[in-house]
Design a protein around this nucleic acid. Structure first.
Length: 1130
RNA sequence: GGAAAUAUAGCUCAAUUGGUUAGAGCAGCACCCUUAUACGGUGUCGGUUAAAGGUUCAAUUCCUUUUAUUUCCA
């Protein structure tokens, strides 16, 4: 007996199937049953278990799961090693919050050891919750042996990679401009800058400064810029950070921007001056009235300042011009030689300012880069230790060399509230403005409101400040990164070419340093004076060095490092070749390096598991959220490409597996999950969706199917519970019903698929049709999965189940199952229905793994047709081209369309389907048409309750035709004359159309064009005198005459319908035979007599008695006539 | 400020890659059907395809600009 269910409960099904998987180790078998020689490699992007999983994790992991399961079906061995991301700032922040401390307290209020222990505990806090979700959502990943990034072995692999880079010269210490908080004395990571509320609107003093050009220099533009010896020509540059002006070292222009030289007067000193600025921004600083004003009549203080454009200059021509240092506090020969000149930069725009950017290399990341590229030195001073430092110290104050402002805080906010409240207090930016105004160096000063980042910790504005950091020289392999990226299949493509591609094009070196406590320590030891350094690439190497240090007396004898984290690793002191102490660089490395190195470190490569690594490199497939584009996707790619150059061991592996140096071949980046209104889910709004509750209520399958079928993975998903319910009702409900239908009859007939397969040729049209469609579907779904298009796969399956399988195939086949005999036709119906169900279970199993497995096993456990104990151990349905019959699919579509047209006509004229009608007319469109329709004629007739189909040709001019231009075909032919041609065609008379049909062509526009019949669509629009409707090319005319005979049959059908309803109401089994007594009402008596056998057969009655004495029973109504009837089970 | 994605019916999504009358499902309304179906059928309501401009015989589709939402980066 096939299992029958009272109702569909997907949540319950999920739990039971999960238990079945566990009991029978199905996941393990799905791997062990596939040959190791046929691997498909998937990398798990490690989640961090210090936060609760959300519904978006169900989304991301469904995508991973789908393709892994699909590849298993296709015969690949898909190992999925799980992993945990355990380091990093979020964990440290969570611990700080839990302990009620700040970063500054670490090492003071709490020891680094205790702190790190707390982190270690925190990081696995929600592991159980995560594991629970993983199971319940049906995500198959190996959690028994996950990689954990804080393990010593993992870290050792990271050290090995770093050493490989170091040896290649790709790991260096450098200076970079970073967000910096003077109050906390620490650099801020980009993560910290992305905290909510860091960017705030502030009003800053902005200055347009006049940079006076040197008139004694060699430059082609000099004659233009200095028209006479007394002319004072300046370049206008704008800044919102006046405190950086003493550090100015260059002016940046856009090479393609148009500039002008304008003669005018300085608005503060009233001195005559010439200024250079972007042409597009002239209107911002000069009033239109000034252009016509007289220079002679101008007096200082006049509201209208005269101006005139004296020259137009291309940006590129300005490059190289030298100017006088604006605030000459600090200078030297190098600066005089190489700084204070105009350089080109790509970040200059004419969006605001003057189109010329004041550049202080040490206080802006863009500035720093532009200066470096153009070899412009920075304005620096030497501190007490002789080290070069900027003009602003780490407290945010000017150094002594900036005499006028020595000791002043550069940002107003760094002063205390009391200091700021003192009378006469002025912000340093304001003081600088005043000074520049009086020195004839300021052209425009005003307050400017803009958004500026603040430290989330201390709430004061950050500085961009140069700090020491360790870098990986990713720029050294930039070209290869770009090149190899083109070999990666990105879904969607735009993420790869756009977001990722552009990012690679503008690649900068990777800043590895983090001044934190819980993370992978940088394995570099330095002599205190920096003259010697060592990079350690393994525990063994470290131990050797420790032994040397022990011999030098710096370390205890036979010391061994138990834990590679801080503070333990900081206790290791090594010895230099000169016998000096070497201390570890205190930095940790960026956690993204941890995860990007997982292909190697998860196997503890190269120290162990070389084979495992080789078999799983590179990944065939990875998937994460699009926010990982510059995170994990990048670090994986960067490390892989760099190792392909720097490491002999990786090179060797690459050679063996034929890898050019990538870490992954296919990547799916999925979008976000938003709430149903399109808002981000957040704790604050309380609009987050609990994945556990969702799975409990609807079942994991429903949630998965909903998320996958609703929107492409890379589109944002608006998560709506009503949508899940719709999926349950429409898709799973329908599919469940098809299964119930099957079991209901299969159990009655004891169908176990033991009979030999009926030849396809012997099967009826409708069976061959659904089999053809099923094969087409298999191929499509296969292609969609292979192309990482799960949404299209889901939609195709859904469409098949709903529109074709359930609402056409089964509906039209029902009668075949009622028959009491066991004919071949019935067997064919069973075999076909079974094949559809089992195939659907396989096709859908990657997306809805629980339901699919239940369906598969409910069927297969009875028939034993397949040897697999789970659908996930089975193989993807093979596509059989010979089973696909496109002509058949076409004519069945026609049958559906024609039926639908007839039903719509019946509706329009108010004759219901139970009333038989004699015939429909179909105008013949082409030779094939009649032949095609004839083969599905019976289906149409029974579906629409019509007696016959009659075909008509237009020989008699009986049909009114309509002609429509086929624009696509005509476009190539007539081009610009389309309008005229279309009009001509639309104006064709019936005779014109007839001529075209006979000759297969016709002249239009007085013979200018010859129109072929393929250039137009001709449809039969109307059959005068008939009820007609059409859709596309199809036209159907209905004969609405109801003869007495038809009427009687109609009444008989009504009676059958009422009896069937009564059977159902009374709870009779579908196989129960009945006795019928019905009142001998004149309205039905003829109908009963003339359709007696038909009625009896339909309702399984042994006989019908017309009884004029009947005065008890059920009252039924037919066409308004009330009639008593008694039916009784025999 | 830069890069990217998205924007089509009240909602969720299509539209054969430039072909003229933009389609489904859900929701609403009306009728109908059902010995698998809390399902289905037919009809109805609903659109300035975010806005503006451009290219073209023809634009939801290509280009430019703008707006909104979102992400990543500075």
């Amino acid at each position: 007996m096939y299992k029958e269910y009272k109702q569909l409960n997907l949540s319950q099904t999920g739990k039971e199937v999960l238990e079945f998987w566990k009991q029978n180790n199905i996941f393990e078998k799905s791997i062990s049953s596939r040959p190791a020689s046929n691997p498909y490699t998937f990398y798990e992007g490690p989640p961090s278990a210090n936060g609760m999983p959300g519904i978006h994790h169900v989304m991301a992991r469904s995508i991973k799961d789908i393709f892994c399961r699909y590849k298993t079906l296709k015969g690949y061995q898909v190992k999925r090693k799980g992993g945990w991301d355990t380091h990093g700032l979020p964990i440290e922040l969570a611990v700080e919050k839990a302990l009620g401390i700040t970063k500054d307290d670490i090492g003071k209020k709490i020891s680094v050891k205790d702190y790190n222990d707390a982190c270690r505990k925190e990081v696995m806090r929600y592991t159980d919750v995560w594991n629970d979700l993983t199971e319940k959502m049906g995500y198959w990943v190996d959690l028994n042996d996950p990689y954990i990034t804080y393990k010593n072995e993992y870290i050792e692999s990271l050290w090995w990679i770093l050493k490989e880079f170091y040896k290649k010269g790709w790991l260096y210490k450098g200076y970079t401009v970073q967000p910096y908080s003077p109050k906390s004395g620490t650099g801020l990571s980009s993560h910290e800058l992305n905290q909510p509320g860091t960017y705030k609107m502030v009003k800053d003093t902005s200055i347009v400064a006049q940079f006076h050009l040197k008139n004694d220099q060699q430059h082609p533009l000099i004659p233009v810029l200095f028209e006479d010896i007394n002319e004072d020509t300046t370049i206008l540059a704008w800044t919102t950070t006046p405190w950086t002006l003493p550090s100015n070292c260059a002016l940046a222009i856009g090479e393609n921007i148009d500039y002008v030289k304008i003669r005018t007067f300085n608005p503060y000193t009233f001195e005559p001056v010439s200024v250079v600025l972007a042409k597009a921004l002239v209107g911002k600083y000069f009033k239109a009235e000034g252009e016509t004003a007289s220079f002679q009549d101008y007096k200082g203080g006049d509201k209208i300042i005269p101006w005139e454009i004296r020259a137009e200059i291309k940006g590129i021509e300005l490059v190289g011009l030298r100017y006088h240092q604006l605030m000459p506090y600090v200078s030297n020969e190098d600066l005089e030689q190489n700084a204070f000149r105009v350089i080109p930069a790509d970040f200059v725009t004419t969006g605001d300012g003057t189109g010329i950017v004041h550049t202080a290399s040490v206080f802006g990341a863009d500035d720093f880069r532009a200066c470096k590229e153009n070899n412009v030195p920075s304005v620096m001073v030497k501190d007490e230790a002789g080290k070069e430092v900027p003009l602003v110290n780490k407290q945010g104050r000017f150094v002594d060399e900036v005499t006028d402002f020595a000791g002043y805080y550069v940002k107003e906010e760094y002063y205390t509230a009391e200091e700021r409240a003192e009378p006469g207090f002025k912000a340093t930016d304001v003081l600088i403005s005043i000074k520049l105004k009086t020195e004839n160096k300021a052209f425009d000063v005003k307050k400017y409101e803009h958004s500026y980042p603040h430290s989330w910790r201390s709430d004061e504005p950050i500085l961009y400040y140069p700090l020491d950091s360790w870098f990986i020289k990713t720029t050294a392999v930039k070209d290869k990164l770009v090149e190899l990226n083109k070999t990666i299949n990105w879904k969607p493509e735009s993420t790869g070419t756009g977001r990722f591609g552009n990012w690679l094009e503008n690649l900068v070196d990777w800043n590895l340093s983090r001044s934190r406590y819980w993370g992978t320590p940088l394995p570099i030891w330095r002599e205190e004076n920096g003259s010697e350094e060592k990079c350690i690439g393994s525990i063994e190497e470290l131990n050797k060095e420790i032994d040397l240090a022990a011999a030098a007396g710096f370390m205890p004898q036979s010391f061994r490092l138990e834990d590679m984290h801080r503070p333990y690793v900081d206790d290791v002191v090594l010895v230099s070749s000169k016998g000096n102490k070497m201390l570890r660089e205190p930095d940790l490395i960026d956690v993204w390096f941890d995860s990007g190195a997982m292909p190697y470190a998860q196997w503890h490569f190269p120290f162990e598991n070389e084979e495992e690594f080789k078999n799983a490199y590179p990944a065939d497939f990875i998937a994460e959220g699009v926010d990982q584009t510059r995170g994990w996707f990048f670090t994986l790619h960067a490390i892989a490409v760099m190792l392909s150059e720097a490491s002999d061991k990786v090179k060797a592996v690459n050679e063996q597996v034929g890898n050019k140096g990538i870490a992954f071949k296919n990547v799916v980046s999925n979008g976000l999950v938003l709430d149903k209104n399109g808002n981000k889910m957040s704790k604050r709004l309380g609009n987050g969706v609990d994945p556990f509750a969702t799975i409990e209520q609807f079942g994991a399958d429903t949630a998965r199917w909903y998320m996958i079928s609703n929107a492409a993975p890379w589109d944002n998903l608006k998560f709506n519970e009503e949508g899940i319910d719709e999926v349950r009702r429409k898709f799973f409900g329908t599919l469940y019903n098809t299964y119930s239908f099957f079991t209901m009859y299969a159990n009655i007939d004891k169908f176990k698929y033991t009979e030999p397969e009926i030849d396809l040729a012997q099967r009826p049209e409708i069976d061959r049709w659904i089999i053809s469609l099923l094969n087409t579907l298999s191929r499509e779904v296969d292609d969609f999965y292979a192309d990482f298009e799960p949404t299209k796969a889901a939609r195709a399956i859904q469409e098949f189940v709903d529109a074709h399988f359930s609402n056409w195939y089964i509906r039209l086949s029902r009668r075949r199952f009622w028959k009491s005999d066991n004919s071949d036709d019935k067997l064919s119906a069973y075999q076909t229905l079974y094949t559809c169900l089992i195939t659907i279970s396989k096709l859908m199993s990657p997306i809805a793994p629980f339901f699919a497995d239940r369906l598969y096993n409910d069927l297969n456990s009875i028939t034993g047709k397949e040897e697999f104990e789970s659908v996930h151990l089975a193989y993807f349905p093979t596509y059989h081209n010979e089973l696909v019959d496109t002509a058949l699919e076409e004519r069945m579509q026609m049958a559906q369309d024609i039926s639908s047209l007839v039903l719509s006509l019946r509706k329009k004229i108010g004759i219901n389907v139970r009333q038989p009608l004699s015939k429909i007319l179909l105008p013949i469109l082409d030779k094939n048409f009649k032949e095609q329709v004839d083969q599905v004629k019976d289906l149409i007739l029974s579906e629409t309750n019509i007696k016959d189909i009659e075909y008509i040709t237009d020989t008699a001019g009986f049909i009114k035709k309509k002609i429509k231009p086929n624009f696509k075909a005509l476009g190539a032919k007539v081009g610009k004359d389309m309008k005229a041609v279309a009009e001509a065609i639309n104006n064709f008379t019936n005779d014109d159309i007839a001529e075209l049909e006979v000759n297969e062509s016709i002249n239009v526009l007085g013979g200018k064009y010859l129109i072929a019949d393929t250039d137009v669509d001709i449809i039969a629009e109307d059959v005068p005198g008939w009820q007609v409707t059409n859709q596309g090319k199809l036209t159907v005319a209905l004969d609405v005459t109801i003869t007495n005979e038809l009427k009687q049959e109609g009444i008989a059908r009504e009676l059958i319908n009422r009896i069937q309803n009564l059977r159902k109401d009374k709870g009779f089994e579908v196989t129960d035979k009945v006795d019928v007594r019905v009142f001998d009402h004149p309205y039905i008596s003829e109908a009963v007599k003339s359709n007696l056998t038909y009625i009896c057969a339909e309702v399984l009655a042994v006989g019908i008695v017309l009884d004029s004495q009947l005065n008890d029973g059920d009252l039924i109504t037919i066409d308004g006539q009330e009639i008593l009837i008694v039916i009784s089970k025999i």
